[in-house]
Amino acid sequence: MTAEPIRITVTVNGESFREEVPATRSLLDFLRDDLGLTGTKEGCSEGECGACAVILDGRLVDACLIFAAEADGRSVETVEGLADGEELHPLQRTFAAAGAAQCGYCTPGMLMACKSLLDRNPSPTREEVTHGIAGNLCRCTGYGTIIQAVMEAAKES
């Protein structure tokens, strides 16, 4: 069957984008292919790995399991919006210093999960951090340095 493209308006990292997309387009593909924001990664497209995690209207979500059309009129935060101009987000600084990114592929989603956690809970316990990143798989670090980086970022802010 044919289906008409849908016109959507989505605010991404504070900037409003008006695009036409087919109904089948995922939010992940919309960000990567339509807007060229390739920081958000595809890891499984099954909602299991968290590489595509972004913040949608203040809530952490996996962009691979959301239709772009569902984001119409809503606001998305991605890794590209984390730094304030030249000024890195505290998490970006502590991730770098702690060695919390190795291959770096899970890092954008992981950073968004951590940001979302700190937005909700500015001084989390280690256990709360662990729960906060449980939906983001990392195969390189063993998670210890990531948890350390979040604890340090929480201390900073």
């Binding site: 060229g36 890794v79 590209e80 890195l88 060695g99 890092t107």
Partner: peptide
């Protein structure tokens, strides 16, 4: 010395170009 990786800034800002990011 315990030094951060040389490519770390690209990685924490989402600028690193992985396989599917090449255009």
């Amino acid at each position: 010395q315990e030094l951060p990786r040389v490519e770390i800034l690209e990685k924490v800002t989402g600028q690193s170009v992985f396989g599917a990011d090449v255009s």
